[in-house]
Design a binder for these strands. Sequence first.
DNA 1: GTCTATAACTGGATAGAC
DNA 2: GTCTATCCAGTTATAGAC
Lengths: 207, 207
Amino acid sequence: MTDDTRARIIAAAERLFATGGEEATSTRAITREAGVNVAAVHYHFGGRGELLKTVLDRQIGPLNEQRLRLLDQAVERHGDPVPVEALLAAFLRPDLELIDRLRASEVQVARFLGRAYTQPSPAVARFMDSQFEPIAGRLFPLLERALPHVEPAELRIRLNLVVAVVTTLFATATPAGEPHQLGSDDVETQLARLVTFLAPGLAAPSP
Amino acid sequence: MTDDTRARIIAAAERLFATGGEEATSTRAITREAGVNVAAVHYHFGGRGELLKTVLDRQIGPLNEQRLRLLDQAVERHGDPVPVEALLAAFLRPDLELIDRLRASEVQVARFLGRAYTQPSPAVARFMDSQFEPIAGRLFPLLERALPHVEPAELRIRLNLVVAVVTTLFATATPAGEPHQLGSDDVETQLARLVTFLAPGLAAPSP
DNA sequence: GTCTATAACTGGATAGAC
DNA sequence: GTCTATCCAGTTATAGAC
């Protein structure tokens, strides 16, 4: 039952990190939730920190793969200057879908991803940066071509503000019963709202 | 020396919460930093939780007073429909100035205020809501008159997105030496950037 | 691989002497 | 008001039996 124990630990950690946040979740709570022994975490992962990185990677890895895929599709569909609205939608959709999945699951909320952005321990910070880099490397040149009238330095700052919004959407995600921050439970509506709000700011002339 | 002890505890707590975050700061660390006895926190505040609320109130209270003052000034200056840019500037300026002060002080960063937004314990969440309510009550009607073409429900959501940006500015504030997220160390420039980015999104037609 | 038992800490809180 | 001493709950981690 070695693989099973490992999987149960990961599942339990995802549930507890999601509801209570990383810092508030002890190894013992995880093993209790998983129904396995305390020592199993150290045996299978080497300690609490390694388990955390494993869990983060399992969430963010697929998210970013989807982002790259959607960006490719947007380029195919729209040709050279991809409209900024399409770029934004490709960038934001995976996040909204993930929040939606987490809200719908038995898990209460999905704030721990937001916390990974806003209050990273140094180790987590390095990890998050390394995950985001390939996305920015793909998205940024496309944004530059879509918005040639905005200076790249200004655009870089504005992209960080977009990321800031997404971050807080994670950090303040509500449970399934309560009303969604973006007003509707439908992901398409949420996406349309976000793009409508963010695209004009990205495209605004430099101050 | 009773008042002195109390003041020293508050000062030490502000320093430590600012650098390490609230959850990571123990009562014992605070009393060590303050050079007072462990029991003093319980004597003067009744416990760790009450101390935290005191510290939060000292930071956020003046911030919101300034916000209300600036909103009043904007109304005086511009007359009935205050332009959305002026409203945004009045709302955002106190935050940017506070971040700037905290960056310049001996304190490394000011992330703990961001954390109070994004990962509040239930008690802190209630406290933060009660602090924000009078601001929203003053700002929202002004926004509605400035942007009559946007439905109030839509506007409410967009205002939350604006707050999300501010939140993350706090949560990810950089130390004094490192480059500022908003590109410049000058608060006026930062404010102009933020308003330029956020105002068009607030004013956009409903999707 | 899994468990018990325990070491070695750190946390908040408080009783009681001063 | 301030201190010491102490309690007790909870944490990571690991040694060693099974």
